[in-house]
Each structure stands twice: as structure tokens, then as C-alpha cells.
Design a protein around this nucleic acid. Structure first.
Length: 645
RNA sequence: GCCCAUAUGGCUCAGGGGUAGAGCACACCCUUGGUAAGGGUGAGGUCGUGAGUUCAAGUCUCACUAUGGGCUCCA
């Protein structure tokens, strides 16, 4: 059923086509109607777009500020205004594409002018002029030929390429403002003045169609909002997010650092190494629970190994090589080939399977310069890596077990907000389709039986098998892959791995590559950003710091220190001749979970004054405090009972 | 690898063609102070590396290296 929405004033023209669906008509009424008769166009600024269809929606849609997509519309138009501004400042510039992204937009240009940060204020000024003049933004639908001719006359070759890619059956729409026009499917604002607040944020290089073999373009990033307040809030959140950048925290908390003489290879200082080791041991506990066996395998292998595994052919540019006694070796970039050698070193029976072997071996991958990023993308790292060799029949239960383990670990770490991606068979792949069916199905049904939500990435799997990727975001919402689970039919074949079956003939095992934390390095980076540096007590290198009020309290403090030390608490004592407030400030900045204040009130007594890093303070008897610490440690509790807020 | 930017004491930063500044941290002294910075004194850098321009370069130019923001890549 179609509804004709009638507006009493001039804005009627935007409703010249019927609106489909009662619900939509009602929603229009509820948003705009002051009276029951027709619709009243009360606030013209509130209606952002009335004319176009949002992709994937079948009805004519009215976008208002109340819609979630309103920012998308504002940013899309802001991108057009950016392009118009750039072309008016540098007329020889060609426009390419300018989409909306999370939290903003960008536009890619092909320009002789090399954009520098100083250009941004100039461009912003021009954009403000365009916005201030409040030009009408109009849509025009053109036949393909006409559109191609139009852009050809304008010299916009990239646009022609884009039009040619549009399906013949689809119409081509063009949006224009102030005589400037751009190929676009919309939707857009009615007027440029509806961009109330925007900011250009950065410049970077990119490639046409994202392919590095294509022409290099220049990208300008920006963001736009419906109000100055919203923009200010966004910029404030960005500032806050930068404060929890793990690279900054790593320095402040003295956890790790880098040196130019070994780019991409972190130095973990004693505190950082403690966190690192504890995470490893935590994972080791889980290995015990989930029946994994840990092995230690060589760091360097003859290059022949990588010829056999196929890595030399496919991964050579990321590997480190070394030559000794005219023999070529490579530093291992992953554990799997070594684990295949280990598996093949003995005769295996079906009774042995599944075999789960874990390895904290150090890996080196020569990532291209320019791709490194703090701890989250490094050249030297260690995974909580393990490989499971099992029969086809065991595949399903192994996947289920792994996901259970993974979920348990992330829940305990307070990071259950992960996203799962299921990447399925790519075009270029090996193995029979039935095998792919089976393994994809195994992955998918395991996810379903565990009630886990996931997104399917069609065709994004490895050439040897489908995989699950566990993704998290950092403080600035950049996604990082941590855990992974991959089915592999390739390596067992390449290494001719076998087991003797019940039928006394040889069979090929399936190999699962899996990691929960991913790499310890990356995990620590992401985890620091998740916790803003406030690591839970069991991971804190220093759980308790004793702060004597004055020098005469040091002696008693030392007694307490010993008690805590004997209770296996990571304790330290600040015996400097400084004021209490000063010592507390230091301990706070170090994110030490608990401070113990020792002064006249405590000396000789059984009660201690405990301050949590949250600011909560409490007097409690020593025994109770020890129990509290014990509980927090053993339960790996994320929040202290003393944390009042 | 590509584009842009940055590179000054341990950290955070200012400065800027004539041989370096601040705060924090550090050392020493005074202060012995109850829940996020008490005061004083002092030590510490030749300004990422290399080359060039100049009478003179941290300061200008170029190359390199590293880092940052992106792109591409990421078994």
C-alpha cells in the first residue's frame, strides 16, 4: 500500500513520489506532524535527505537527525564539499572516490600538488565558504552514455572508469552543488549549510582501487557531525583514546621499548617480562586442562624445510636467511613445519590421536618497513601456538574444544567482546570440494553449537583451508586479529604425515593451527589498551607497594614487607624520604593495584590502611588483606572488592 | 615497499644560521610530612646518522635510518 504524504508548505515537492508502507508514513507523521492532517514541515534543518533511496532499502527513505544514518549523509556531503574545495584550489586535480568510513570520511585525489598538513586549514576555509553559501544539492539521473560524455568533457577519467563498472541496467546519478558535480549514488543533504561541524584530520597516500600496482593517489581524511558539540565530543574521545595507546603506556609503565638497531623487535624490561611470563604460564595452565603437550623446537632450519612446506615459494620475502659453512638456513617464521617434522619422527597410531602440541617458540618475520606498529605488528614475536593432529572424525570436537577454551580465556581476561570471522574457501585453493565442505561445516556447526555469533568472510580463507579469526579493536578502533583457528590439509600432505588406522592401513591426519592470544606481543598491546594500563592484580608486576608515612615507620614497613613477600605477593617498599602524597602519586601513575600506608596508626598494630588504585581506602586487619589478595590472584578477578565506583 | 609528517638530555616538549632551554625523572642537602606533586642545590644533551651549502648549521639542502598517521601487505 502506498501513502501519499502531503506537506502543507513548499517542501511538498520532495514528496512527489508515494511512500511505501504504513509504518514509514506513520514514522513521518510522528516525526513531523503537528496536526493530524497531513504533515507539517516544522524544522527544515532536521530533514537531511528526502529524495534518494539508501542502498539495500526498498522504500523511499526520509533521513532526519534522529536516524542513525544521518551522520553518514552529513559526512558523504562533507566529502563532496571537500572535493569541490580541493578542485577550486587546485583545478588540475582529478577526483576519484570519497566514501564515508567509521567516524568520518575521506576523498582520494590525483593531483600534481603534493598535499601537506599546512594545506588542511586552507581547504577547511574554502569548505566553510561553500557551507556558508548554503548551496542547494541536487540530484540528476543520467543515461550512461551521457554521464560518460559529461565526465569525459570534464577530464575526469577515474569517474569514467567507475561508470563503466556500474551495471548496465542501473541508472547513473550525479549530485551537484554550486555548479560542481560528482558521480554519486547518494544520499546527500539538501543544502551544503546542513554540514554544521567538520574537521579535516589527516593526509596519506593510497592507491587507485587499493592496488599498489596502480597509480598512487593522495587521500584527505576528515570527519563531520550534526553539531559543534558532537564534533568536540568526538575529538575529545580521540584524545582520551590516545592516552591509552599501548606504546605510550609501555613507556610510562616501563614495560617495553624499541631500539632503532632492531626495528620491530621489542625489549621487554623486567616488569614487561613479568607480565609476558605470567600470560604464558596462564596459558600453560590451560594447556594442562585441555590436554596439550608443550614442545621446544629449533629456531633455525635448513632452507630445504621451507621448500618442502611451500613457505619458501610463498613466504620467502618475509623470511630471514643466514648462511653457514655454505649451507643455507632460515630463522623460523612459524612453528608448523617444525611440528610436522616432529610428528613425522615417530610412527603414529590412531590411538595416539588427537595429538596437541604447543610451542612458545620465538618467530621472526621480516615485515615490510612501514607496516610495523608498536607491539601489535612486530618482526620478532612468540605465539601461544599449538597444532592439533587429528582424524577427520575428530575435527568437529577439536574445534568445539578450542572455541570453549578460547571463550573461557577471553571471559577470564574480561575481553569477551571479540568478533569471530569465518573465512571460507578462496578461488585459488587446493583439495577436494568435499573436504572443504566438511571443514567449513565443522567450523560453522561448532560456532552454532556454542551459540557464538560470527560473520562469514566469503572466499577469504587460506589456500589450504578455511579459518576462524578472532578480532579485537585497539583504543582507536583499529582491528587486530588475535586468536585464530585454521584447518590445514596441505602440510600433512607436503610432509607425508600418516597414522596407522584401525584397518591397519595408513591415513593422513588433519592439522589444525590454533592460537588463543595470537602473539603474546600483540595481545599485550591490545590488552593494555583495553585495560588502559590497569592490569588485573595477577598480571601486575607489582601488586602491593608499601608507603611509610615518614622515616620512623620504615622499620615496621620492612616487617610487613617480609610478611607479604613470604605470602608470595609482589610487593615493593617506597622508603624514600618523601611526603606521603608524593609517594601515592607515584604509585598511582605506576598503576599499582594496592598501596599500604604505614604510619603511627599502624605501627605495632594488626590493622593496615589499604588504598586501591581506584582511590578507595579501607582499614583492614592484615590477615583479611592477605585473603583478599589471594582471592583476587587465584580467581584472576578483574575488579577489586575495594573498587567502590 | 608507497605517500605525508616527525627525530633536541632518561621522559614530555620549547627554541632556532653564530657553538643549546624548561618541566618531570635523577644526585645531594633541608624538611619527617597521613591518602595524587614541600623547598634548595647540582649533574646531565652538540640537537637521529652521513654528506652538502655557508666565514659560520641543531637551525638551510640532499641521502639514509627510525618513529608516527594512512595505503598495500599480514600462513
Amino acid at each position: 500500500m502506498d501513502y501519499k504524504v502531503i506537506l502543507p508548505d513548499a517542501s511538498e515537492k520532495y514528496f512527489d513520489q508515494p511512500v511505501t508502507g504504513l509504518e514509514l508514513a506513520q514514522s513521518i507523521s510522528s516525526q513531523f506532524a503537528k496536526s493530524a492532517v497531513g504533515l507539517r514541515y516544522t524544522d527544515s534543518q532536521e530533514i537531511l535527505d528526502l529524495r534518494t533511496q539508501i542502498p539495500n532499502e526498498t522504500q523511499t527513505h526520509i533521513v532526519t537527525l534522529k536516524d542513525e544514518s544521518s551522520r553518514e549523509v552529513i559526512r558523504h556531503s562533507a566529502a563532496h564539499i571537500l572535493a569541490q574545495a580541493v578542485q577550486s584550489l587546485w583545478p588540475k586535480t582529478q577526483v576519484t572516490i570519497g566514501p564515508v568510513i567509521e567516524d568520518g570520511f575521506f576523498y582520494d585525489f590525483d593531483s600534481e600538488h603534493v598535499f601537506v598538513p599546512e594545506d588542511l586549514p586552507v581547504i577547511e576555509k574554502k569548505m566553510k565558504e561553500i557551507i556558508k553559501k548554503n548551496f542547494e544539492i541536487t540530484k540528476k539521473v543520467l543515461p550512461r552514455d551521457e554521464a560518460i560524455k559529461l565526465f569525459k568533457d570534464m577530464g575526469e577519467t577515474y569517474k569514467i572508469e567507475l561508470i563503466e563498472a556500474i551495471d548496465e541496467s542501473e541508472s547513473v546519478s550525479v549530485y551537484s552543488q554550486d555548479g560542481w558535480l560528482d558521480l554519486c549514488r547518494g544520499p546527500h543533504l539538501q543544502k551544503t549549510g546542513q554540514v554544521k561541524a567538520f574537521k579535516l584530520t589527516s593526509i596519506s597516500g593510497c592507491y587507485w582501487r587499493g592496488d599498489e600496482n596502480n597509480k598512487a593517489l593522495q587521500r584527505i581524511y576528515g570527519t563531520a557531525f550534526e553539531s559543534k558539540e558532537a564534533l568536540a565530543e568526538h575529538l575529545h574521545l580521540l584524545e582520551e583514546a590516545k592516552k591509552r595507546d599501548h606504546r605510550k603506556l609501555g613507556k610510562e609503565l616501563n614495560l617495553f621499548h624499541f631500539h632503532p638497531l632492531s626495528p620491530g623487535a621489542p625489549f621487554f624490561s623486567p616488569k614487561g617480562a613479568t607480565v609476558y611470563r605470567r600470560l604464558q604460564n596462564y596459558i600453560r595452565d590451560k594447556y594442562k586442562k585441555y590436554n596439550y603437550d608443550e614442545v621446544i623446537t629449533p629456531q633455525i632450519f635448513d632452507v630445504d624445510l621451507y621448500h618442502q612446506s611451500g613457505h619458501y615459494e610463498n613466504y620467502r620475502e618475509n623470511m630471514y636467511f643466514t648462511e653457514t659453512e655454505s649451507r643455507s638456513f632460515s630463522v623460523k617464521p612459524m612453528n608448523c613445519p617444525g611440528h610436522c617434522l616432529w610428528y613425522g619422527s615417530d610412527k603414529r597410531s590412531y590411538r595416539d590421536l588427537p595429538i596437541r602440541i604447543a610451542d612458545f617458540g620465538r618467530l621472526h618475520r621480516c615485515e615490510r618497513s612501514g607496516t610495523m606498529h608498536g607491539l601489535t605488528r612486530v618482526r620478532s614475536f612468540c605465539q601461544d601456538d599449538a597444532h592439533i593432529f587429528c582424524t577427520q572424525d575428530q575435527l568437529m570436537s577439536e574445534i568445539g574444544e578450542f572455541m570453549t577454551m578460547l571463550n573461557e580465556i577471553y571471559t577470564e581476561l574480561g575481553m569477551s567482546d571479540y568478533k569471530i570471522y569465518l573465512s571460507t574457501r578462496p578461488e585459488k585453493r587446493m583439495g577436494a570440494d568435499e573436504t572443504w565442505d566438511q571443514s567449513e561445516q565443522a567450523l560453522e556447526s561448532a560456532l552454532k553449537s556454542l551459540n557464538l555469533e560470527y560473520t562469514v568472510n566469503e572466499g577469504d580463507g587460506a589456500f589450504y583451508g578455511p579459518k576462524l579469526d578472532i578480532m579485537f579493536v585497539d583504543a582507536l578502533k583499529r582491528p587486530w586479529q588475535l586468536g585464530t583457528l585454521q584447518c590445514d590439509f596441505n602440510l600433512p600432505k607436503a610432509f607425508e604425515l600418516e597414522y596407522v588406522g584401525m584397518d591397519n592401513t595408513n591415513h593422513r591426519p588433519v592439522m589444525l593451527h590454533r592460537a588463543v592470544l595470537g602473539s603474546l606481543e600483540r595481545f599485550i598491546g591490545v590488552y593494555l589498551e583495553h585495560t588502559a594500563g590497569r592490569l588485573p592484580l595477577w598480571l601486575s608486576p607489582n601488586a602491593v607497594k608499601i608507603l611509610p608515612v615518614s622515616d620512623r615507620h620504615i622499620e615496621f614497613s620492612q616487617t610487613i614487607f617480609k610478611v607479604l613477600e613470604e605470602a608470595k605477593i609482589d610487593v615493593s617498599l617506597d622508603d624514600r624520604s618523601e611526603k606521603l602524597g608524593y609517594k601515592i602519586r607515584q604509585a598511582q601513575l605506576e598503576q599499582i593495584p594496592y598501596m599500604m600506608i604505614v604510619g603511627d596508626e599502624e605501627v605495632g598494630g594488626t590493622e593496615v590502611s589499604v588504598r586501591h588504585r581506584s582511590g578507595a581506602t579501607q582499614k583492614m586487619i592484615m590477615k583479611a588483606f592477605l585473603e583478599l589478595l589471594d582471592l583476587e590472584k587465584s580467581q584472576r578477578r578483574l575488579q577489586s572488592t575495594l573498587q567502590l565506583d
